[in-house]
Design a protein around this nucleic acid. Structure first.
Lengths: 164, 164
DNA sequence: ATGGTTGCTTCACCCGAGCGAAACAATCGA
DNA sequence: TCGATTGTTTCGCTCGGGTGAAGCAACCAT
Protein backbone atom coordinates (compact mmCIF):
# COMPACT_ATOMS: atom_id res chain seq x y z
CA UNK A 1 0.00 0.00 0.00
CA UNK A 2 1.29 3.47 -0.83
CA UNK A 3 2.23 5.98 1.82
CA UNK A 4 0.33 9.26 1.70
CA UNK A 5 2.16 12.51 2.46
CA UNK A 6 0.16 15.03 4.46
CA UNK A 7 1.10 18.59 5.37
CA UNK A 8 0.64 19.18 9.05
CA UNK A 9 -1.31 20.96 10.31
CA UNK A 10 -2.59 22.46 7.04
CA UNK A 11 -4.18 19.27 5.71
CA UNK A 12 -5.23 17.82 9.03
CA UNK A 13 -8.83 17.50 7.92
CA UNK A 14 -7.82 14.90 5.41
CA UNK A 15 -6.02 12.98 8.11
CA UNK A 16 -9.04 11.53 9.84
CA UNK A 17 -10.15 9.35 6.97
CA UNK A 18 -6.59 8.16 6.35
CA UNK A 19 -6.38 7.02 9.94
CA UNK A 20 -9.76 5.38 9.76
CA UNK A 21 -8.92 3.47 6.61
CA UNK A 22 -5.54 2.31 7.93
CA UNK A 23 -3.61 4.05 5.18
CA UNK A 24 0.06 4.55 6.06
CA UNK A 25 0.88 8.23 6.15
CA UNK A 26 3.78 10.58 6.72
CA UNK A 27 3.05 14.01 8.15
CA UNK A 28 5.22 16.87 6.94
CA UNK A 29 5.44 19.10 9.96
CA UNK A 30 6.01 22.78 9.37
CA UNK A 31 9.02 24.51 10.94
CA UNK A 32 6.98 26.00 13.75
CA UNK A 33 4.23 23.44 14.23
CA UNK A 34 4.29 20.90 17.03
CA UNK A 35 4.33 17.23 15.99
CA UNK A 36 1.16 15.13 16.22
CA UNK A 37 0.65 12.78 19.14
CA UNK A 38 -0.66 9.64 17.45
CA UNK A 39 1.09 6.39 18.30
CA UNK A 40 -0.27 4.46 15.37
CA UNK A 41 2.64 2.43 13.90
CA UNK A 42 1.34 3.32 10.43
CA UNK A 43 1.74 7.03 11.09
CA UNK A 44 5.01 8.93 11.19
CA UNK A 45 6.11 12.53 10.85
CA UNK A 46 9.16 14.53 9.90
CA UNK A 47 10.15 18.10 10.56
CA UNK A 48 10.57 20.41 7.57
CA UNK A 49 12.90 21.26 6.02
CA UNK A 50 14.10 17.70 5.74
CA UNK A 51 16.73 15.75 3.87
CA UNK A 52 15.18 13.88 0.99
CA UNK A 53 16.79 10.61 2.02
CA UNK A 54 15.28 10.91 5.47
CA UNK A 55 11.82 11.29 3.97
CA UNK A 56 12.36 8.27 1.79
CA UNK A 57 13.63 6.23 4.75
CA UNK A 58 10.49 6.98 6.75
CA UNK A 59 8.26 6.23 3.79
CA UNK A 60 10.03 2.91 3.31
CA UNK A 61 9.54 2.01 6.95
CA UNK A 62 5.83 2.78 6.77
CA UNK A 63 5.49 0.76 3.60
CA UNK A 64 7.21 -2.18 5.23
CA UNK A 65 4.91 -2.01 8.25
CA UNK A 66 1.86 -1.85 6.03
CA UNK A 67 3.13 -4.83 4.07
CA UNK A 68 3.68 -6.83 7.24
CA UNK A 69 0.22 -6.13 8.48
CA UNK A 70 -1.81 -6.83 5.42
CA UNK A 71 -0.16 -9.18 3.00
CA UNK A 72 -1.00 -12.85 2.80
CA UNK A 73 0.34 -15.17 0.12
CA UNK A 74 -2.25 -16.67 -2.19
CA UNK A 75 -2.24 -19.66 -4.47
CA UNK A 76 -4.43 -18.99 -7.48
CA UNK A 77 -6.17 -21.42 -9.80
CA UNK A 78 -3.35 -21.42 -12.27
CA UNK A 79 -0.86 -22.67 -9.74
CA UNK A 80 0.79 -19.31 -9.28
CA UNK A 81 1.95 -18.36 -5.84
CA UNK A 82 1.49 -14.63 -5.34
CA UNK A 83 2.94 -12.45 -2.61
CA UNK A 84 3.36 -8.70 -2.44
CA UNK A 85 2.95 -7.99 -6.17
CA UNK A 86 5.25 -10.78 -7.24
CA UNK A 87 4.63 -14.36 -8.22
CA UNK A 88 6.27 -17.64 -9.16
CA UNK A 89 5.00 -20.70 -11.01
CA UNK A 90 5.05 -23.93 -9.05
CA UNK A 91 5.29 -27.50 -10.15
CA UNK A 92 2.35 -29.81 -9.29
CA UNK A 93 3.92 -31.27 -6.17
CA UNK A 94 5.10 -27.90 -4.99
CA UNK A 95 1.62 -26.57 -5.59
CA UNK A 96 0.14 -29.04 -3.14
CA UNK A 97 2.79 -28.41 -0.55
CA UNK A 98 2.49 -24.65 -0.90
CA UNK A 99 -1.29 -24.96 -0.74
CA UNK A 100 -1.13 -26.71 2.61
CA UNK A 101 1.29 -24.13 3.94
CA UNK A 102 -0.64 -21.14 2.63
CA UNK A 103 -3.89 -22.37 4.17
CA UNK A 104 -2.23 -22.35 7.53
CA UNK A 105 0.09 -19.41 6.93
CA UNK A 106 2.18 -18.69 9.98
CA UNK A 107 1.28 -21.95 11.66
CA UNK A 108 2.89 -25.35 11.64
CA UNK A 109 1.80 -27.99 9.13
CA UNK A 110 2.78 -31.53 10.04
CA UNK A 111 5.02 -33.53 7.79
CA UNK A 112 2.49 -36.33 7.53
CA UNK A 113 -0.21 -33.84 6.52
CA UNK A 114 1.94 -32.56 3.72
CA UNK A 115 2.91 -36.04 2.59
CA UNK A 116 -0.76 -36.99 2.45
CA UNK A 117 -1.55 -33.93 0.45
CA UNK A 118 1.17 -34.33 -2.15
CA UNK A 119 0.91 -38.11 -2.42
CA UNK A 120 -2.57 -39.26 -1.31
CA UNK A 121 -1.76 -42.88 -2.12
CA UNK A 122 1.36 -43.00 -0.06
CA UNK A 123 4.71 -41.33 -0.12
CA UNK A 124 7.31 -42.54 -2.58
CA UNK A 125 10.22 -42.30 -0.18
CA UNK A 126 10.75 -41.02 3.27
CA UNK A 127 13.09 -38.41 1.94
CA UNK A 128 10.88 -37.20 -0.88
CA UNK A 129 9.23 -34.53 1.21
CA UNK A 130 12.58 -33.13 2.31
CA UNK A 131 13.73 -32.77 -1.25
CA UNK A 132 10.56 -31.05 -2.40
CA UNK A 133 10.65 -28.71 0.55
CA UNK A 134 14.17 -27.82 -0.46
CA UNK A 135 13.05 -27.09 -4.00
CA UNK A 136 10.05 -25.13 -2.80
CA UNK A 137 12.28 -23.06 -0.56
CA UNK A 138 14.49 -22.04 -3.42
CA UNK A 139 11.55 -21.06 -5.56
CA UNK A 140 9.73 -18.92 -3.07
CA UNK A 141 12.81 -17.19 -1.74
CA UNK A 142 12.49 -14.71 -4.59
CA UNK A 143 9.10 -13.70 -3.21
CA UNK A 144 10.41 -12.97 0.25
CA UNK A 145 8.79 -16.06 1.65
CA UNK A 146 10.49 -18.79 3.61
CA UNK A 147 9.66 -22.22 4.93
CA UNK A 148 10.93 -22.76 8.42
CA UNK A 149 11.39 -26.10 10.05
CA UNK A 150 9.89 -26.93 13.39
CA UNK A 151 11.78 -30.00 14.29
CA UNK A 152 9.78 -33.21 14.69
CA UNK A 153 6.58 -31.25 14.12
CA UNK A 154 6.52 -29.90 10.61
CA UNK A 155 7.01 -26.82 8.52
CA UNK A 156 5.83 -23.23 8.73
CA UNK A 157 5.47 -20.62 6.01
CA UNK A 158 6.23 -17.00 6.81
CA UNK A 159 7.54 -13.76 5.44
CA UNK A 160 11.30 -13.91 5.08
CA UNK A 161 12.06 -10.75 7.00
CA UNK A 162 10.54 -11.27 10.40
CA UNK A 163 7.63 -13.24 11.61
CA UNK A 164 3.97 -14.20 11.65
CA UNK B 1 8.85 1.08 30.15
CA UNK B 2 11.57 3.67 29.55
CA UNK B 3 12.83 4.59 26.13
CA UNK B 4 16.56 4.11 25.61
CA UNK B 5 18.49 6.62 23.52
CA UNK B 6 21.18 5.14 21.31
CA UNK B 7 23.71 6.96 19.20
CA UNK B 8 23.71 5.64 15.67
CA UNK B 9 25.84 4.14 14.34
CA UNK B 10 28.37 4.52 17.18
CA UNK B 11 26.48 2.42 19.72
CA UNK B 12 24.96 -0.05 17.31
CA UNK B 13 26.47 -3.02 19.13
CA UNK B 14 24.22 -2.37 22.07
CA UNK B 15 21.24 -2.22 19.78
CA UNK B 16 20.81 -5.93 19.18
CA UNK B 17 19.98 -6.78 22.74
CA UNK B 18 17.60 -3.86 23.01
CA UNK B 19 15.74 -5.15 20.00
CA UNK B 20 15.70 -8.67 21.40
CA UNK B 21 14.33 -7.59 24.73
CA UNK B 22 11.62 -5.44 23.20
CA UNK B 23 12.92 -2.27 24.78
CA UNK B 24 11.64 0.86 23.06
CA UNK B 25 14.55 2.86 21.67
CA UNK B 26 15.25 6.09 19.84
CA UNK B 27 18.31 6.21 17.61
CA UNK B 28 20.14 9.52 17.44
CA UNK B 29 21.41 9.59 13.89
CA UNK B 30 24.54 11.60 13.22
CA UNK B 31 24.44 14.39 10.64
CA UNK B 32 26.08 12.25 7.97
CA UNK B 33 24.87 8.78 8.85
CA UNK B 34 22.05 7.06 7.04
CA UNK B 35 19.04 6.08 9.12
CA UNK B 36 18.49 2.44 10.14
CA UNK B 37 16.02 0.28 8.27
CA UNK B 38 14.15 -1.48 11.05
CA UNK B 39 10.37 -1.38 10.90
CA UNK B 40 9.85 -2.32 14.49
CA UNK B 41 7.15 -0.02 15.90
CA UNK B 42 9.16 0.21 19.11
CA UNK B 43 12.13 1.68 17.27
CA UNK B 44 12.38 5.22 15.94
CA UNK B 45 15.15 7.59 14.95
CA UNK B 46 15.79 11.26 14.65
CA UNK B 47 18.40 13.25 12.76
CA UNK B 48 20.85 15.33 14.76
CA UNK B 49 20.91 18.16 15.49
CA UNK B 50 17.31 18.04 16.59
CA UNK B 51 14.84 20.23 18.36
CA UNK B 52 14.42 19.08 21.93
CA UNK B 53 10.64 19.05 21.64
CA UNK B 54 10.87 16.74 18.65
CA UNK B 55 12.97 14.29 20.61
CA UNK B 56 10.50 14.36 23.46
CA UNK B 57 7.61 13.85 21.07
CA UNK B 58 9.19 10.73 19.61
CA UNK B 59 10.06 9.40 23.03
CA UNK B 60 6.49 9.94 24.14
CA UNK B 61 5.18 8.05 21.11
CA UNK B 62 7.48 5.11 21.77
CA UNK B 63 6.44 5.04 25.42
CA UNK B 64 2.81 4.99 24.44
CA UNK B 65 3.38 2.13 22.01
CA UNK B 66 5.29 0.17 24.63
CA UNK B 67 2.38 0.68 26.98
CA UNK B 68 -0.01 -0.70 24.39
CA UNK B 69 2.12 -3.74 23.85
CA UNK B 70 1.58 -5.51 27.14
CA UNK B 71 1.50 -8.82 25.41
CA UNK B 72 1.62 -12.12 27.21
CA UNK B 73 3.63 -15.04 25.90
CA UNK B 74 1.56 -17.85 24.52
CA UNK B 75 2.32 -21.47 23.83
CA UNK B 76 0.34 -22.53 20.81
CA UNK B 77 -0.78 -25.99 19.78
CA UNK B 78 2.22 -26.48 17.57
CA UNK B 79 4.71 -26.14 20.38
CA UNK B 80 5.72 -22.65 19.39
CA UNK B 81 6.30 -20.06 22.05
CA UNK B 82 5.12 -16.70 20.75
CA UNK B 83 5.88 -13.32 22.24
CA UNK B 84 5.60 -9.86 20.72
CA UNK B 85 5.34 -10.98 17.09
CA UNK B 86 8.26 -13.34 17.36
CA UNK B 87 8.43 -17.02 18.09
CA UNK B 88 10.73 -19.93 18.73
CA UNK B 89 10.20 -23.65 18.38
CA UNK B 90 10.59 -25.63 21.57
CA UNK B 91 11.60 -29.20 22.05
CA UNK B 92 9.07 -31.50 23.80
CA UNK B 93 10.61 -31.17 27.24
CA UNK B 94 11.04 -27.44 26.88
CA UNK B 95 7.45 -27.20 25.76
CA UNK B 96 6.21 -28.69 29.01
CA UNK B 97 8.46 -26.51 31.11
CA UNK B 98 7.50 -23.39 29.20
CA UNK B 99 3.85 -24.37 29.46
CA UNK B 100 4.01 -24.48 33.24
CA UNK B 101 5.81 -21.14 33.34
CA UNK B 102 3.50 -19.43 30.86
CA UNK B 103 0.37 -20.53 32.74
CA UNK B 104 1.68 -18.72 35.78
CA UNK B 105 3.48 -15.94 33.96
CA UNK B 106 5.18 -13.61 36.39
CA UNK B 107 4.69 -15.99 39.31
CA UNK B 108 6.89 -18.67 40.81
CA UNK B 109 6.52 -22.27 39.71
CA UNK B 110 8.03 -24.86 42.03
CA UNK B 111 10.80 -27.13 40.83
CA UNK B 112 8.88 -30.24 41.78
CA UNK B 113 5.88 -29.02 39.80
CA UNK B 114 8.01 -28.59 36.73
CA UNK B 115 9.75 -31.91 37.16
CA UNK B 116 6.41 -33.65 37.46
CA UNK B 117 5.16 -31.88 34.38
CA UNK B 118 8.09 -32.72 32.17
CA UNK B 119 8.57 -36.26 33.46
CA UNK B 120 5.29 -37.53 34.97
CA UNK B 121 6.85 -40.90 35.67
CA UNK B 122 9.81 -39.53 37.53
CA UNK B 123 12.80 -37.45 36.58
CA UNK B 124 15.76 -39.13 34.93
CA UNK B 125 18.35 -37.30 36.99
CA UNK B 126 18.16 -34.61 39.57
CA UNK B 127 20.24 -32.49 37.24
CA UNK B 128 17.93 -32.89 34.27
CA UNK B 129 15.68 -29.98 35.16
CA UNK B 130 18.63 -27.64 35.60
CA UNK B 131 20.03 -28.46 32.21
CA UNK B 132 16.71 -28.04 30.49
CA UNK B 133 16.13 -24.75 32.24
CA UNK B 134 19.50 -23.62 30.93
CA UNK B 135 18.56 -24.60 27.40
CA UNK B 136 15.17 -23.00 27.69
CA UNK B 137 16.78 -19.79 28.90
CA UNK B 138 19.03 -19.59 25.89
CA UNK B 139 16.25 -20.30 23.50
CA UNK B 140 13.78 -17.74 24.78
CA UNK B 141 16.37 -15.01 25.20
CA UNK B 142 15.85 -14.18 21.53
CA UNK B 143 12.23 -13.38 22.36
CA UNK B 144 13.10 -11.03 25.16
CA UNK B 145 11.94 -13.48 27.81
CA UNK B 146 13.89 -14.73 30.77
CA UNK B 147 13.56 -17.35 33.47
CA UNK B 148 14.54 -16.11 36.87
CA UNK B 149 15.40 -18.26 39.82
CA UNK B 150 13.78 -17.89 43.20
CA UNK B 151 16.07 -19.84 45.38
CA UNK B 152 14.64 -22.91 47.07
CA UNK B 153 11.22 -22.06 45.68
CA UNK B 154 11.31 -22.37 41.93
CA UNK B 155 11.43 -20.45 38.69
CA UNK B 156 9.63 -17.44 37.32
CA UNK B 157 9.08 -16.33 33.72
CA UNK B 158 9.16 -12.66 32.85
CA UNK B 159 10.02 -10.16 30.17
CA UNK B 160 13.77 -9.66 29.87
CA UNK B 161 13.75 -5.95 30.49
CA UNK B 162 12.06 -5.73 33.82
CA UNK B 163 8.32 -5.66 33.87
CA UNK B 164 5.73 -8.38 34.09
C1' DA C 1 34.35 -15.47 60.97
C1' DT C 2 35.09 -20.34 59.45
C1' DG C 3 34.02 -24.13 57.16
C1' DG C 4 30.68 -27.13 55.43
C1' DT C 5 26.27 -27.94 53.17
C1' DT C 6 22.79 -27.22 49.96
C1' DG C 7 20.87 -25.42 45.79
C1' DC C 8 21.62 -23.93 41.42
C1' DT C 9 24.34 -22.88 37.05
C1' DT C 10 27.09 -24.15 33.45
C1' DC C 11 30.11 -26.94 30.57
C1' DA C 12 31.50 -31.00 27.98
C1' DC C 13 30.42 -35.30 26.19
C1' DC C 14 27.65 -39.05 24.11
C1' DC C 15 24.10 -41.14 21.28
C1' DG C 16 20.36 -41.38 18.18
C1' DA C 17 16.99 -39.31 15.38
C1' DG C 18 15.59 -35.68 12.24
C1' DC C 19 16.69 -33.08 8.60
C1' DG C 20 19.40 -30.73 4.58
C1' DA C 21 21.59 -30.95 0.41
C1' DA C 22 23.93 -32.67 -3.54
C1' DA C 23 24.12 -35.82 -7.21
C1' DC C 24 22.14 -38.94 -10.28
C1' DA C 25 18.58 -41.42 -12.83
C1' DA C 26 14.10 -41.70 -14.86
C1' DT C 27 10.11 -39.71 -16.80
C1' DC C 28 7.14 -36.40 -18.97
C1' DG C 29 5.68 -32.86 -22.12
C1' DA C 30 6.31 -29.06 -25.66
C1' DT D 1 15.45 -32.93 -28.62
C1' DC D 2 15.54 -30.26 -24.69
C1' DG D 3 14.19 -28.60 -20.43
C1' DA D 4 11.32 -29.31 -16.44
C1' DT D 5 9.70 -32.43 -13.02
C1' DT D 6 10.06 -36.16 -9.98
C1' DG D 7 11.99 -40.15 -7.49
C1' DT D 8 16.01 -42.15 -5.12
C1' DT D 9 20.28 -42.68 -2.75
C1' DT D 10 23.85 -41.16 0.11
C1' DC D 11 26.57 -38.30 3.15
C1' DG D 12 26.88 -35.33 6.88
C1' DC D 13 25.31 -31.89 9.92
C1' DT D 14 22.36 -30.36 13.59
C1' DC D 15 19.49 -30.98 17.32
C1' DG D 16 17.32 -33.21 21.51
C1' DG D 17 17.98 -35.42 25.58
C1' DG D 18 20.60 -37.83 29.19
C1' DT D 19 24.70 -37.89 32.09
C1' DG D 20 28.73 -36.60 34.88
C1' DA D 21 31.28 -33.17 36.88
C1' DA D 22 33.08 -28.62 37.99
C1' DG D 23 32.07 -24.09 39.77
C1' DC D 24 29.39 -20.45 42.31
C1' DA D 25 26.75 -18.51 45.72
C1' DA D 26 23.70 -18.33 49.42
C1' DC D 27 22.74 -20.31 53.76
C1' DC D 28 23.58 -22.74 58.25
C1' DA D 29 25.82 -24.42 62.29
C1' DT D 30 29.21 -24.42 64.92
Amino acid sequence: MDVVLVRWPEESSHLEELRASGTPRLLLVGPDASPPASHDPLEDWIRLPADDRDVRARVATLEARAGDAVTLPTLDNDGLLRFRDAWVALSPVERELAGALVERYGAVVGRNVMVHRAWPDGAPTRNALDVHILRLRRRISSLGLEVRTVRSRGYLLQSANGNT
